[in-house]
């Protein structure tokens, strides 16, 4: 590792490893975990990783902070634009997290659980009940059943179709 001055190449490599590491850990956490609250925490980590990567994209070797007055005027300065982007991204992240936590509160109050698999079943049941039909794959409407028989010659299609349907779906 050639030490080319204080901010040598290895400093940037370490930072990039940190940024990509946070991103992958956050993505794994969001995708693999089974508890909604833990997914929100993994989202926090993924956002921190993306913000770190964004600030890194403006970093220059040997440049200082873009605040005038704290150092000599002609010293090279770091690119200020990615820092503005990250300021915005951080506050967006907090807004989304606060909304996520409040919706989790309501889910927990209604269903008492935050497990992703259980909640997906609840979701399916509720949508079917809200639409006023038997849930998928239940005794009344086995999954494989097709609501309408294959089309029969047009002449008496309407009459037979009507009788078949009501028989099948009532």
């Amino acid at each position: 590792m050639s030490a080319m001055g204080p901010d040598s190449l290895s400093f940037v490599v370490v930072m990039y490893v940190g940024a990509f590491g946070l991103l992958v850990i956050g993505a794994i956490g969001m995708v693999m975990s089974n508890h909604l609250f833990r997914m929100v925490l993994a989202l926090v980590i993924a956002e921190a990783g993306a913000n770190l990567l964004l600030v890194l994209s403006g970093w220059r070797d040997g440049a200082l902070a873009p605040i005038l007055g704290t150092h000599a005027a002609d010293v090279p300065m770091v690119d200020p634009v990615p820092q503005v982007l990250v300021l915005t991204a951080i506050v967006i992240g907090v807004g989304v997290q606060a909304l996520a936590v409040s919706v989790l509160l309501k889910i927990h109050r209604i269903y008492g659980t935050l497990d992703v698999r259980a909640l997906r079943r609840h979701l399916e049941l509720d949508i079917c009940r809200d639409a006023g039909m038997a849930p998928e794959g239940s005794r009344e409407a086995p999954a494989g059943e097709r609501p309408l028989p294959p089309p029969i010659p047009v002449a008496d299609a309407l009459r037979t179709a009507a009788t078949d349907q009501t028989g099948a779906t009532s």
Binding site: L23, G26, A27, M30, V31, L36, M39, V40, L43, A46, E47, G49, A50, N51, L53, L54, L56, S57, P82, L85, A89, I92, G93, V96, L99, A100, V103, L104, K106, I107, I110, Y111, L119, R120, H122, L123, D126, I127, D130
Partner: peptide, 28 residues
């Protein structure tokens, strides 16, 4: 309704993950 909240939180997490990836794209 309970179903609305579940659908919202799943949509929120998917959209937030998408936004993180979009941010990485913008950084590159």
């Amino acid at each position: 309704t309970g179903a609305a909240y579940i659908a919202t939180v799943r949509y929120l997490l998917l959209s937030a993950l998408g936004s993180v990836l979009a941010l990485v794209g913008i950084a590159i």
